[in-house]
Amino acid sequence: MNMVSLRNRIREPELEHDLGRDPTLGYEPREMHGSLRYLEHGIPTPLVRWHQHEEYELHLIVQTRGKLFVGDYIGHFEPGNLVLTGPRLPHNWISSDPPAGGVALRDLVLQFADAPLRAASSHIGELQGVLPLLERARHGIEFFGMSETVRIHLERIKASHGLQRFGEFLQLLGELARCTEYRLLSTVQMQSFDDDASLAQLSGIVSYLTDHCAEQFTMSDISARAGMSESQFSRYFRRATGNTFTDFVNRLRINRACQLLMETDRYVSNVCYDVGFNNVANFNRRFLQIKGMTPKDFRRQAEGRYGSKG
């Protein structure tokens, strides 16, 4: 392998498919799960790997401590760690203190699809209350003070079938939607709007910024695209995202830098310019401010997301 190909080697998360969800690994038999799929497993297991899938996943740790990897987030977990990840959001939990013989039960997991809930919410008004939760889950949500309540719900879901199981699931979703003690694990978030028009406008702005964040533009350029004066846009954007325009763009660029640092071997200096920063010193300063570590340290720690085989 030459140096160019080595520097651009891609290390993407494994995409999990139904065919790989073998009951011998802890999954329910396919005929049992319906729109919900319950899973529990211990370690060692081949399920502990850097991966993603189309479903939401509610993940409760009941034993061991270690490092948690969700998207570009790196943190610590211990028993009681409760996280909801959204579709295609890569994740992994790597235990650092397993006993020599492993543990029989480390993870309680519930997977559920996006489309059925959104389709049902258009006809069942009560379900619209969970839509903000689903939006937040795209960035990964860590909940606090909920683990015992959620464990009870998960055990009931495991033991039930049909309508009773779905009713337990709806109660669980309601508990999570009402929880105010949580944090998002992504570097960028959007806040909800009460009206669809404002949400659509904001989504269009954020989509444009996301697609073009490596390019050079000013707030004046973006406010003109939105049909607002700079002062109007500044107030609107701050209210909508919780960030100033400059901070939001910096977070988008750092978010993209994290992806490149995790998935390629490109030099840090190259990543800096790839994501739209004009000098390495400013890039390093912003990265440290947002992620709490340098780009080199982030890459080194991120290597742990693969763990060991088993």
Rank of each mutant, 00 (worst) to 15 (best):
L173Y: 01
D297M: 12
G304D: 06
D114W: 01
G167I: 05
H51A: 02
N270P: 00
R30Q: 15
D196C: 05
Q289N: 13
Q301P: 00
R30F: 14
C179H: 01
C179R: 02
R235I: 04
H59P: 00
T294D: 11
A197R: 10
K309F: 07
I254D: 11
R49L: 11
P132D: 07
F277T: 05
G80P: 04
M219L: 15
Q63A: 15
Y267R: 08
G242C: 09
D18A: 15
P44E: 06
E181Y: 04
P23K: 05
Y73D: 00
V280Q: 11
L127W: 04
P44G: 06
F144S: 13
L185V: 04
A257I: 03
A104C: 00
L58A: 02
S160D: 07
V130E: 02
E126K: 13
F233M: 11
T24A: 12
E126W: 12
E148T: 10
E55V: 03
P132N: 02
N279E: 13
D274Y: 07
R165T: 03
D194F: 01
A120W: 07
M1C: 13
A159C: 03
M3I: 14
F193M: 14
I152A: 07
L154A: 03
M228K: 11
C179L: 03
R300I: 06
S192M: 09
N284K: 12
L288P: 13
A240W: 01
S231C: 01
F144R: 08
